[in-house]
Design a protein around this nucleic acid. Structure first.
Lengths: 239, 239
DNA sequence: AGAATAGTCAACTCGCGGTTTGATTAACTA
DNA sequence: TAGTTAATCAAACCGCGAGTTGACTATTCT
């Protein structure tokens, strides 16, 4: 009873479908276009307000389509949210362009995190909504599990990459790469996640692009100044 | 029509009221006790699930009181949330015990952030809900503004303190104290805000106390390794 | 003790917002 | 060009959950 209609859902992979319509742009009824519009709008709204506060009506409005189309293409608000998650993971998996100075990578992260269209806050929303997980009442394909696994793989990869560099002497090996990544990520998202603190701390009443740049640079600075080999002092002290 | 009853609301300041009831504990009807219970429960629930997902029923249940008492004492779910905010600010204002090694302070932050009873995630929720602010439809005393001002003052104080130390040569003065604080705070909350990432990164399926300690130590380590005076390299580069 | 008030409760209301239903029209096929 | 399917839409539905109502009881005051 869950899945009732739902059109062609996912095309195999090859983009162009059998029918090569003459005017792919002027078309007034174009599923692909509509879906894309909805997704774009959804990313913005979900990222800005979070799942609960996001209004399906709002998303539809921004996308310039009828509200019902959301259920039509994605079955439900949830479904839409899931789809976004998928896309996002795919997207960043390919644009992660590792083998790029850690600090620099973080810097990008900062910039990306405040771009409304990229939905950097989604990560934080997901984390906060993540209360212990597994509130599976009954049905529901273990959809979430799959997503989690996918994400974990990606994270582990990151850890691996960083560990390499560490081994290459770029960073003191007293640091746990996993911890470093978590620190970098969370700090990188700070402007997006704690805009109120940012305003208060920097004494501005908006998170301006300049501020973003400034913060990014500062954070990068911090990361760059991590010791590279055996540290000069800090002999472990207490405990 | 908003405020109809509401009891004595806030007692001036002096705790003991005129009537010194003989058995303050055994009492079966005790407003103060009930209020406290509600507040405690509320912190947990709000912190865990966020405002929207928090169910008034749930809070009441945990507090072991009737649901209606929430409206009775705090007028509304919102009111309860506000009150929590106030208390929290007050609380941390007094327990901030500054003039304590920055790294150490952050370390405490990490531990606090994962304690469900302390509601460390509230900060993140607030930040995420903070979409540009000022969605004031109409009424509503500029309550929020006051809170914001209060918070800002506190933040500025922190900045000031850190600036002192910086001037005292404890930290390289190329760093912006505001940025450092934001970094520290966000990274300090990371385990609480991104539990899913934490699990993925560290390969555990729970955020155990040991993990908390480990992460706290790592973060502290990072902070301690910040250069103290003129840095050896990094000649400023671009811009 | 008796009145007044503060604390507590169960049950009802009522709007908001996601989903369903059923019709309507564009696009494609035979 | 008729028939079929995909895309779109407006309106009705319906459950959830916060807030309200009005009664009932413990406490305190006189």
């Amino acid at each position: 009873m869950a899945t009732q209609h739902t059109p062609q859902d996912q095309e195999p992979a090859g983009r162009q479908r059998t029918r090569r319509s003459p005017a792919p742009h002027e078309r007034q009824r174009d599923a692909e276009r509509t879906k894309a519009r909805i997704l774009d709008a959804a990313v913005e709204v979900f990222s800005a307000k979070g799942f609960d506060r996001a209004r399906v009506t709002d998303i539809a409005e921004r996308a310039g389509v009828n509200q019902q189309l959301i259920s039509y293409y994605f079955n439900s608000k949830q479904g839409l949210y899931r789809e976004i998650g998928r896309r996002w993971r795919a997207y960043e998996a390919e644009t992660i362009s590792d083998d790029l100075d850690f600090a620099e990578q973080i810097k990008r992260g900062v910039r990306a995190s405040v771009d409304p269209r990229l939905g950097g806050r989604l990560l934080a929303w997901d984390g906060l909504y993540d209360t212990g997980e597994d509130d599976t009442g009954e049905d529901d394909t273990g959809e979430d599990d799959v997503e989690a696994r996918e994400r974990n793989a990606q994270l582990q990869h990151e850890v691996q990459v960083l560990r390499e560099r560490q081994r290459a002497g770029e960073i003191d090996d007293r640091f746990d790469p996993a911890a470093l990544i978590l620190i970098g990520l969370s700090a990188g998202n700070a402007l997006a996640v704690y805009p109120h603190l940012a305003r208060g701390l920097f004494g501005t009443d908006t998170v301006s692009p300049e501020l973003v740049e400034h913060y990014a640079e500062q954070l990068a600075q911090v990361i760059r100044s991590l010791p590279a080999a055996a540290p000069p002092s800090v002999p472990d002290s207490h405990t």
